[in-house]
C-alpha cells in the first residue's frame, strides 16, 4: 500500500497542503501540482532548469526530497512577474536577447534574483559564480551575463526612485 504524505509548503506566497509519495522530489511535487514553470531537464542536479528558491536560497528542486521542504517557503519564477507585469530581471532577459528556446530561463532568472538580493551590483565574475549551476544550450552565456548586469542596473534605479 502506498503511504502518502500530506505536508504544507508556501508556494509563491500561498500556503497549501501537498500530498505525495515519501520519496518524491520537490520538482515532481511542484510539477504534478501545476507548477510547470519549474522545468525538468536532467533530474540529476546538473542543468539548473528546475531551480527554485527555498527559504531564500536557490536549490535544484530535483535534488530536494519534497518531505524535507516541510513548512518551507518556495518561490518559482511566477512569483516575480508575468508577461503583462514583468519583473526588471525578466525585462532585462528579454531585452538583452538572453532568451532563445527559454527552457533554462526560469532557473537563470531565479539565480539572478537570489544574486541581486544579496549583491545589487555584482561584477562579471560574481555573476558567473552565482549562475554556475544554470546551463544554457542556446545563448552561449554572453547575453545572459549582459542581462544580469542590466537587471542589476534596472533594480538599482528602481530602488533609488
Amino acid at each position: 500500500m502506498n503511504n502518502l504524505l500530506s505536508l504544507d509548503f508556501t508556494v509563491n506566497g500561498k500556503s497549501e497542503t501537498f500530498t505525495f509519495k515519501p520519496d518524491a522530489s520537490l520538482l515532481t511535487v511542484l510539477r504534478d501540482n501545476g507548477r510547470t514553470e519549474v522545468h525538468n531537464g536532467c533530474e540529476t542536479g546538473d542543468c539548473g532548469s528546475c531551480v527554485v528558491i527555498l527559504n531564500g536560497k536557490t536549490v535544484n528542486s530535483c535534488m530536494v526530497l519534497a518531505a524535507s521542504a516541510k513548512g518551507g517557503d518556495i518561490l518559482t519564477v511566477k512569483a516575480l512577474g508575468d508577461i503583462y507585469n514583468p519583473h526588471p530581471i525578466q525585462r532585462a532577459f528579454a531585452e538583452s536577447g538572453a532568451v532563445q528556446c527559454g527552457f533554462c530561463t526560469p532557473g537563470q532568472v531565479l539565480s539572478t534574483y537570489a544574486l541581486l538580493l544579496e549583491n545589487p551590483d555584482p561584477d562579471v565574475e560574481q555573476i558567473k559564480k552565482a549562475l554556475d549551476g544554470n546551463i544554457c544550450r542556446c545563448t552561449g552565456y554572453k547575453k545572459i551575463i549582459e542581462a544580469v548586469l542590466m537587471a542589476g542596473r534596472l533594480m538599482r534605479e528602481a530602488d533609488n526612485g
Partner: peptide, 9 residues
C-alpha cells in the same frame, strides 16, 4: 564544489 544551488543544500 558543485554549483551554487547544490552548495546551498
Amino acid at each position: 564544489a558543485a554549483s551554487t544551488p547544490l552548495r546551498n543544500r
